[in-house]
Amino acid sequence: MPAVFFYLFAAVTLLFGVMVIVSKNPVTSALSLAVSFVGLAALFLGLDAYFIGTVQVLVYAGAVMVLFLFIIMLLDIKAETGKTPNYAAVFAAIVVGVLLVLQVATIVSTFEKGKLTTLEVPLRPKEALAAMGKNALPGIQRDLEAGILPDTKLMGLQLYHHYGFHLQIIGLLLLVSTVGVVVLSKRENRTEGGAK
């Protein structure tokens, strides 16, 4: 990804992230977060993670944030007014945040000494094809031969071939959360023993 795009999307992600925190109106916060997530998705694309980037837009920016907005509208939550911010908390938050970023900056400055390569390594589909050998499914094989990164296909292979068990766990988790949402959001039923 050209550097200018990186800086652009990183700025979008972070600036709108700041908006989430500082805006007093929850609707603004939610919308800012959605934009921030779109910026993040762009960063994912820059990292050649096309599938993850798409999912980020679909699930986060699409579904999750809409859910947030929906709830905010439903409950009709007004902007906070008249409250003076808790300056101690603001100060603590800034200190914690700055320290964290500094910490990470210090750590990443040591990378070159270790084995982590920080320079972008070009992807080499041909080499990958050789390494995968017969394990590669036909579709993946074709794409790799053509020199394209079959990101979504590789994710599919990964999820269904290697992480099937975890996919099942996640399925169970989604079921539990469905049950949970039903249980937690049903209205009080005054007639005893009534069905849901």
């Binding site: 992600t13 992230g17 925190i21 964290l100 990443v108 972008e120």
Partner: peptide
Amino acid sequence: MITLNHYLIVSSALFALGLAG
């Protein structure tokens, strides 16, 4: 040239924003 470090700094900044929030 955009390196791994750039992404990690952005990620940590985002994390810090969340924490601060």
